[in-house]
Design a protein around this nucleic acid. Sequence first.
DNA 1: CGACGTTGTGATAACGTTGTCGCAACGTCA
DNA 2: TGACGTTGCGACAACGTTATCACAACGTCG
Lengths: 342, 342
Amino acid sequence: MVTLSDVAKQAGVSPSTVSRVVNHSGFVSKDVADRVRSALVELDYRPNIVARNFRSKTTMTIGVVVSDLTNLYFMDALRGVEEVLSSEGYLLLIASSNNEVAKELQYCAEFDRRRVDGIILASAGASGNDLAQVFRERSTIMLLDRIVDGAQFDCVLDNNNEGVRQVVQYLLSQGHKDLGVVSGPLQITAGGERVSAFEKFANQAGLQIPLEWSWVGDAFSMEFGYKAATKFMRLAYKPSAVFCTNNALTAGFLLALAERDVRVPEDISVVSYGSLENGELLATNITEIEQPARQIGRVAAHRLLRRIRGEDVPFEVVRVDPQLSLGNSVKFLKSVRDVQPN
Amino acid sequence: MVTLSDVAKQAGVSPSTVSRVVNHSGFVSKDVADRVRSALVELDYRPNIVARNFRSKTTMTIGVVVSDLTNLYFMDALRGVEEVLSSEGYLLLIASSNNEVAKELQYCAEFDRRRVDGIILASAGASGNDLAQVFRERSTIMLLDRIVDGAQFDCVLDNNNEGVRQVVQYLLSQGHKDLGVVSGPLQITAGGERVSAFEKFANQAGLQIPLEWSWVGDAFSMEFGYKAATKFMRLAYKPSAVFCTNNALTAGFLLALAERDVRVPEDISVVSYGSLENGELLATNITEIEQPARQIGRVAAHRLLRRIRGEDVPFEVVRVDPQLSLGNSVKFLKSVRDVQPN
DNA sequence: CGACGTTGTGATAACGTTGTCGCAACGTCA
DNA sequence: TGACGTTGCGACAACGTTATCACAACGTCG
């Protein structure tokens, strides 16, 4: 391997000077710089980034832990993060916990040991205590999509209340009064907030969500969506519309319906929080909340940069508004004018 | 930060001894080890991996560059890679080139500078020269899915010939004789091999693929699939079946058909090389080649490990057999017995 | 002309870890 | 008993880079 000293020897200068040229840190005369540059090219010098990181105590690397790499939502968020950080010269270390809390913590610890400059975490369920322990001295952490209590961290996520408000308003406007909901764990922010907002807005319109129409599972997985749909289909008296609080749940739900030839929206109306992969290919275009994933990623990245730069901003929860995208998965029952939640 | 020396002082031993305990390298008596271990816990020592990597010249990190992180195929391959390497203690550095050759080379160079122990690359089109230049001294590289000529690298990919053989055989068995094909660039292995195999097996059955039924685009993208379908729909005399050589192409192709209410398989039969995301939700189940992505990832990872360990195996192209999965996207025209390619 | 700031360069010391060596203590075998 | 291998531990150097000085050369301003 060619080192700085090799180049220095070749150019007849000191390693310090070569370092200054490589890092564009100035204080080098034009002709010396030229001599060094040609030596660099001639020897095909490649900086040893590990040595640099070691000495400079900064790695220009950000670790990202998501709970499910195959989920479109996280991919979009990741894209937003990448946009911002790579333009600032950072490299992303990406890891997927596959919804396993232990793995999530393990990756976080590994990133911390590797001295990444910052960590972005879409937590699958680690407790505030766990995280505080892993991140003892670190302040450069940004949570995505999930608020962890018992610990001081920033968090960037959907304005779930607003998204769900739009969902309920739309369902009511189409005349639906028998509403069901499918969700992952309520301890997870996405679950808890969306379900309780759903109930809240339903209540405000004078409706109740009966317990047997509320399917809350142990994960935001296709598997549970599928299971919920099978339970739904066995009901004697069914809701006219079902709200799935996450795209994986929706996919599973729709799959089970399709297998039993239950049609959407003829037999059941469906609204999804979050977009489906290849959703545009489905026979029925799903009415869904388009999450501002990319924007969330961008905001998180920017905020993380500020922390890395040492700005002492207070910990905060940042909300980004999602938007309802109309499809044809909700059947029009009858026009309702006077019901307008909020 | 707590360092080895801090722990050493606390335990009343030398840093070397602490290092030996941390790394389980033996030659430490039981009671000294215990003393060190309690000091480690007491001070909450966390090894500085950067320093370790620097000194030991090994990072226990593998860089993976894929051309499209949103593609199910690469996600599966990644999973295979991860399975093997993480069990050996390696961490994955994942980057997506988004089909941009420049970005792909940039990431490779960055990984190389960061002294990753190995690189797995699903190339979007870099030339052998480019890669040879980036990887001057490095031998620990594994190519996925694409053979790059003009350079000495291992490569693990589909047995495209076998997959396409099954596709053609099936189409013939269903009585199809008017065959079309949609593909990305032929210079990319997946394009070149699949298209030429398709033509070969068609020819063997006495069929020709006319030029106007062969759509070859500039990328394996949904956009081009869409474009191909619009061209297809404008034809006066159309093929009865179309073979899309990649899942993204298939998705685009189907989307354009759906928008014009062209039905599959009633109006046109479609076979895809590679599975669609959420394919099980589509109205028609696509007949497709299931690529052995995970297995390919695993094989590549194992082979890479051997190279990292210094085994001097010759460069090789490894093929893994894919499998046809029958759906209902191919219309049965009439039974044909005697046509059996190969 | 002297004081002072700016610019250019090199010497030197780290950064935290691991590899190598030296040495001592101990056990084993001839 | 002496030679030799094994085990346990510490001293020390080294990895390649950058940060910090020190210092010289030069220009500028009062």
